[in-house]
Amino acid sequence: MAERTPVTQTTIYDDDWTDHHAVGLEHARVAFVDVDMCEASNERSVFTECTFTNVRFNCSTQTDVAFLNCTFVGCNFFDATFTRCKLVGSAFDRCTFELLKVQEGDWSFVALPGARLGTAEFTGVRMREADLTGARCEGGVFRDVDLSGAALQKADLTRCDLRGSDLSGLDPLTTELRQAIITADQATTIAVALGLDVRAA
């Protein structure tokens, strides 16, 4: 189960938010269960210590939305788009992320252990100290992502596009990096992590 599960006070169950356009919602300690948010759009809303169980975010757009210390269990994010969103301290358990697009925003301290992110795209996102332990990111995109302090042990970054991302905390001995796409500067960072003495020619 996801860690840091909030204690909720009210429940929204089996509701239909399909195609719903919301602006400026505020929910705190609310449990959303079996809610359909497919193709919904949400702007400038704030969800604090909420839980989302079996919620369908398919093809939805979240813009400037904050999900603070929230927990997502069994949720579907197929082709969902998060733009400039803040998910600090949130945790994901048994969720699906096919074709998820995350553009900018702050996902620091997010827990995504074992998540399958191979078709997801993260661009310009802050993911400081995120838990990506054992994450399956084969072929995924993490461009210009701040991964400083992130837990990447046993993560699979095979063929992952990592250009411009902070890899200073990555241990190449515990993370799979075959055919990952990186820049020359990042290659130097990884070489130093391996204990190599990198010098100018």
Rank of each mutant, 00 (worst) to 15 (best):
R136H: 14
R94S: 12
R143Y: 05
D185Y: 07
D16T: 05
M127H: 08
G105T: 02
C95N: 05
D14Q: 12
T5K: 14
L147H: 07
L177D: 06
C38M: 09
D106K: 00
T189S: 13
D144P: 02
A200R: 08
Q9A: 13
D14S: 13
L117W: 02
F77Q: 08
V125H: 01
G24E: 05
P113Y: 08
L132A: 12
F97Y: 15
N54T: 08
G118D: 01
T133L: 10
E39Y: 01
A31G: 08
T83C: 09
N54C: 12
V192H: 09
G114D: 02
T175K: 07
Q186V: 09
G74M: 00
F77C: 07
D15S: 15
K86N: 15
C95G: 00
G139M: 00
Q9C: 10
R178H: 03
E176H: 02
C70V: 06
V55T: 13
T175P: 02
S45G: 11
D16Y: 10
C70H: 05
F78K: 09
D146K: 03
R136S: 11
L100F: 03
R199D: 15
C50K: 06
V198L: 07
T183Y: 13
T48R: 14
T10W: 12
T71F: 04
S60Q: 00
V65S: 08
R56T: 09
N54S: 08
V65G: 03
V65W: 00
L132R: 07
F72T: 02
D93E: 10
A187W: 03
F92M: 01
E3A: 01
F142E: 14
L100G: 03
P172N: 08
N58W: 06
F52R: 02
M37E: 07
Q186G: 12
D16L: 13
T63W: 00
